[in-house]
Design a protein around this nucleic acid. Structure first.
Ligand SMILES: [Mn+2]
Ligand SMILES: [Mn+2]
Ligand SMILES: [Mn+2]
Ligand SMILES: [Mn+2]
Lengths: 220, 220
DNA sequence: TACTATTTTTAGATTAGTCTAAAAATAACC
DNA sequence: GGTTATTTTTAGACTAATCTAAAAATAGTA
């Protein structure tokens, strides 16, 4: 059996591998888990022993197929629970991550299968992140960050690449949510800030810090 | 913060106190948690240190008000999750205990408050056990075990005092569920086995081992 | 009351997971 | 290419939770 702690390491390694497309470094994992590098090295030995990771001293780590299965399953559970919390219990999208962080460790395949079914087999979570299927496959979606669009182009919000509380709350204030439609009105070359028309209604100016974290599907 | 393990000890002590109306013994707790008496003594010291239990060497333990609050809250969460699993995810009553045993440790007051609301503020769980309110108060219900009824008396099933898998599956086979109505047809004095008429339809013979674990509300 | 059986506690070890400080390996730079 | 700087690993210690075996306390009984 994999412990709560081991699971968190596997998930961290998965996320780093995914984001950087490189083996995860000891320091990178330590940062992600908020622990010391020494603790990470300790745990890497144990995970390698269990054949959940490929680990060579000083060379960084990747997941074995078994480790990958566990990690993607955690992400699947995390995102399904987030859908439950938002769609059924009416939590807001910025409130659910921490709770899902605990719920994802509940070990019951039948529970997840039934939950998935109960929620209508959702393919994306409340933040627009894809929910891997039971085999760990992720759905690929055509998307760009909003800062890649040029004037007059339109897009619909399908996700966010930042999950920080303050960011999501800021979007709430602007009434920007998944499904919101944007038309680029103008772009300031100096600071890359963008004036957009939201849902054909209101014009809002967004900083580059914001637009680069908004994932949109281009509209023709 | 109270750990997963500490919570399980508090719940075990609560259950023993409730069942025996006496301080819980070291061996009693060890049996309940499936651990050694030495481990229990260790943990009792720690829980006493945290002022969650009243503990005097060799004298057994009871819960302090704070310990009691934690224990009843665990039972509240456990039973609410069981309702969710049965009513929303269509699990059967004999499948939910183990999953709820994990879910009960999820720490989020808003989650439980919303879950309670979502389920329609149920007052009893799928096994007929009362769900304590947020203050830890249990609803008292007028009930007797079926073996206390005499011939010609009628009762409706409101709970079971045995939650073992095999017992619940046996009841499933006989199509006995909460709400089932019984009329006592006859009682065999030799072994206290009872012939009942279920829902005015079928006659079944139940052993004393079964009838003593069926909790009914008498009907006039 | 004295002896025996049972229960409970202590003593001492073990394992998972963590830490700090120091040593070793690798990467960066002049 | 040699010297720093950074990263990673090792060494050694700590805590929570567990165990077995032995000692101490309590309960049961003749
Ligand atoms: Mn999340
Ligand atoms: Mn998410
Ligand atoms: Mn239960
Ligand atoms: Mn129950």
């Amino acid at each position: 059996m994999t412990s709560f702690t081991e699971e968190n390491y596997l998930k961290a390694i998965f996320k780093i591998n995914e984001k950087t497309s490189k083996p995860a470094s000891t320091n990178g994992i330590a940062l992600q888990i908020s622990t010391s590098a020494a603790s990470v090295t300790d745990m890497l030995k144990r995970l390698a022993e269990k054949e959940l990771i490929n680990y060579e001293k000083y060379k960084g780590v990747t997941l074995t197929p078994v480790g990958n299965k566990i990690a993607t399953n955690l992400i699947r559970k995390h995102r399904l629970w987030e859908v439950f919390l938002v769609n059924k219990l009416n939590f807001s999208w910025e409130q659910v991550h921490d709770i899902a962080e605990d719920l994802e460790h509940i070990k019951s395949d039948s529970l997840i299968q039934r939950l998935d079914n109960y929620l209508g087999n959702p393919r994306f979570d409340p933040h627009g992140d894809p929910i891997p299927n039971a085999e760990g496959k992720f759905m690929i979606r055509n998307q760009t960050s909003l800062d890649q669009l040029s004037a007059k182009q339109k897009g619909v919000l399908v996700g966010v690449s930042q999950h920080q509380l303050e960011f999501l709350q800021y979007l709430n204030e602007l009434e920007i949510k998944l499904g919101s439609e944007f038309e680029i009105i103008s772009i300031t070359s100096f600071d890359k800030s963008v004036k957009i028309r939201k849902d054909g209604m209101v014009d809002i100016t967004l900083s580059h810090e914001v637009t680069k974290n908004l994932l949109v599907k281009k509209l023709v």
